[in-house]
């Protein structure tokens, strides 16, 4: 009992190992991205070429939009498996809607995918069902809907040449496609919402400790509904961008995209258990994934499937780090 009477206890210095683990977990993607880019720049002369960089940025922008929504969902402690299907569905709906003009092409996917996301959110928030099951159901539902409206994929809706909608995906500024700027703007906005609004604080609180959040008066149910709706809308929008870029609603895309999105979010330092994460980390995760893919393409002799091998290994490392951090808390 005498120990308590001595000087006020200092906060114990964080053990170095813990500090390293915590930095690796939060900034690992950024560090790895810098390393990988440096290596690629030196090893492959074509990597740094403007064409390659533009292509890299464009390819990253679609996944970034989907992963942005996923970041919000995962921070609330949830998961959204429907984004790949909604991405493909959004593309088809955009191409289909483009016959009635720009607005229809844009709004049709946003509304339909947003509505499916809203249903996801309502089911998760109001019935307490597991997000995994709810969104697995809408993955199947959206993929089925897509196959139904395209006669099992045999009908591909084309976007008429000269349609204003094509500009959205194909227009460029300084050689960079519009989708790059759109994705960047959305991520900036998303980061601001997450960090600097009461809604963002509710997202963190919901995922951090749901029961406590409820007792602290956080609108937990509304927050969950909002993030799943947001995820649906953003997936549909990514689909619309892709359709505009490809000039048609391609039905075979988006298979497994939900797993890509989840992995880049987690690689970017967002805790899979919820309560912590950043949009910037997610952007780094997307960049890392696509740069590795790009390098493998540059090597040429390597099977492109090695991209998944590398991503998988990296994801495993990140998740192990997260686990050790969460347990310590």
């Amino acid at each position: 009992m005498t120990a308590q009477m001595t000087a006020p206890p200092e906060t114990p210095a964080k053990p170095r190992r813990e500090l390293v683990a915590s930095v690796l977990q939060r900034q690992g993607a950024a560090i790895a991205l810098v390393v990988v880019v440096a290596v690629a720049w030196l090893a492959f002369p074509r990597f740094g070429s403007p064409d390659n960089l533009r292509d890299l940025a464009l390819q990253s922008s679609f996944l970034a939009v989907i992963a942005l929504g996923m970041t919000f969902v995962i921070i609330t402690g949830g998961i959204d498996l429907s984004v790949g299907s909604l991405y493909a569905l959004g593309g088809v709906l955009a191409a289909y809607g483009s016959q009635w003009g720009f607005l229809a092409a844009l709004l049709l996917p946003l509304l339909v995918c947003g509505a499916i996301g809203l249903v996801n959110g309502l089911l998760v928030a109001r019935t307490g069902m597991a997000p995994f099951i709810v969104t697995l159901a809408s993955l199947l539902f959206a993929r089925g809907l897509l196959l139904a409206i395209t006669d099992e994929g045999s009908t591909t809706y084309q976007i008429a040449p000269g349609s204003a909608f094509l500009e959205l995906g194909r227009g460029t500024v300084f050689g960079f496609g519009y989708p790059v700027f759109i994705a960047a703007a959305l991520c900036l906005l998303g980061g601001l919402v997450l960090r600097r609004t009461r809604f963002g604080q509710s997202v963190f609180a919901t995922g951090g400790a749901e029961q406590s959040a409820l007792l602290m008066g956080v609108p937990v149910a509304r927050t969950k509904i909002a993030v799943y709706t947001l995820s649906g809308v953003l997936s549909g929008f990514a689909g619309a961008l892709t359709a505009s870029y490809l000039q048609s609603g391609v039905t075979v895309i988006g298979v497994g995209t939900e797993l890509d999105a989840i992995s880049v979010v987690v690689i970017g330092g967002t805790l899979l258990t919820g309560g912590a994460g950043t949009v910037l980390g997610t952007v780094m995760g997307v960049g890392l994934r696509n740069v590795i893919q790009n390098i493998i393409n540059q090597i040429g002799t390597l099977d492109s499937n090695y991209q998944s091998v590398v991503s998988g290994a990296f994801l495993l490392v990140v998740v192990v780090l997260q686990r050790s951090l969460v347990r310590r808390r």
Binding site: T197, S202, S212
Partner: peptide, 26 residues
């Protein structure tokens, strides 16, 4: 303790009534 362990101390203290600037941002 019914608070959010991963959130900052200040964030916990003001959750739901954060001071906001003139653009409505925290």
């Amino acid at each position: 303790v019914n608070l959010i362990p991963l959130m900052s101390v200040a964030g916990n203290l003001f959750l739901g009534r954060e001071p906001r600037n003139r653009w409505g941002l925290v």
